[in-house]
Amino acid sequence: MDINMTLIGQTIAMIVFVWFCMKFIWPPILEAIEERQKQIEEGLAAADKGKESLVKAAAEADEIVADARKQATSILDQAHARANEIVADGKADGVKERERQLVAAKAEIEQESNRAREELRGQVSAIAIASAEKILLREIDSKAHADILGKLAQEL
């Protein structure tokens, strides 16, 4: 319990240790701590920013999807309209074509029947003449009655 030189020794030891701590221990450790604190702070800020931009991107994506949906709907509508148009056009064309063909067929039939009638008329007149000839050969001179025969043939 006596006070002695140990007191001075302890004071000197303390000065040396404190000096060493001040020179070689405290500054590097505190520097590392402060640097890490800064890094963590920056990391947190970056994470916040990332979150924010994620929200923004999600909103943008939603907008794009909505746009695309709208466009798709309009394209579909257009296609429907165009299809209807095409079908209507086709129908009209068909009707026209049918009428055209009908008219052509009617004209051909007419023509054919005229031709047949002409032929038939020729043949009938020939037959008539032949039969008349045969009859008249006996009774009349074909030359004298040619005008009458011709008139007959015309009327047949």
């Binding site: 006596d2 006070i3 002695n4 030189m5 140990t6 020794g9 302890q10 030891a13 303390m14 240790f17 060493f20 701590c21 221990i25």
Partner: peptide, 21 residues
């Protein structure tokens, strides 16, 4: 005696100071 030194106190205190350092 004021000029005495407590060897054990000094030894352990310096040793522990060195452990810390």
């Amino acid at each position: 005696n004021f000029w005495a030194v407590n060897i054990d106190s000094m030894f352990w205190s310096v040793l522990l100071g060195l452990v810390f350092v």
